[in-house]
Amino acid sequence: MSHPSDSTAPPFTSFSQQREAATLGMWGFLGMEVLFFGPMFLGYIVFRINFPDAFMTASRHTLILAGGVNTALLLISSFTMALAVRSANLLEDSAKVVRSLLVTLLLGGAFVGIKCFEYSHEIHEGLLPGASFHLDGADPQQAQMFFYLYFLMTGMHLLHVIIGLGLIAVFILRAKLTVRKERFSIAMEQLGLYWHFVDLVWVFLFPLIYLGGRAA
């Protein structure tokens, strides 16, 4: 079943060793990512404590429908990614992997599109921090801090999504071309972990950014 060239990468001596090492390394990397996003969340918490009213008012100016749809898109894309990883692990026909990855790519692409629409809307409304920032009903300086954090955190997340989409595109090609299925499945598992992590960050961003002050 296994292709003759499908051998482990040095210095590993077995696929299981290589798989465990790669997964361990990926989780170490994701732990690093948690602490890369962490300071921005800390900043958000500190300024939400300092400026509670402005943050609630500013939060109401975000587009909750766009944010909600985007959350759903990411969650579903995580599902299709899980399917792609599953197919790769079963060493199935690469067409199945490619199909799941393509759907993931489309969903992720839609996320980026909607996010860009939101940005352009907010910039049009004068919510981009800077000299022209204005927002009625709240201390402009404090509301500006909310939108600074908003652009920063969603922007950093968007960067991760775009990197993920680039990787998915590469993996679609790889899935089509490769004969080294075992090695490919190890790599696919790490791609999956990365994509789910991007989803995970958004799961926390969504309520903090979009849901504040909706009940008032």
């Binding site: 732990g31 690093m32 602490l35 890369f36 300071p39 921005m40 921090p129 500006q144």
Partner: peptide, 25 residues
């Protein structure tokens, strides 16, 4: 190295952004 360095990394990015655009936390 793995758990502390990313905090420095994003903090320095924030400093650079703040310096470039005049807005920051």
């Amino acid at each position: 190295l793995v758990l502390a360095t990313p905090v420095l990394a994003i903090t320095l990015v924030l400093v650079a952004l703040e310096r470039a655009f005049g807005i920051g936390i």
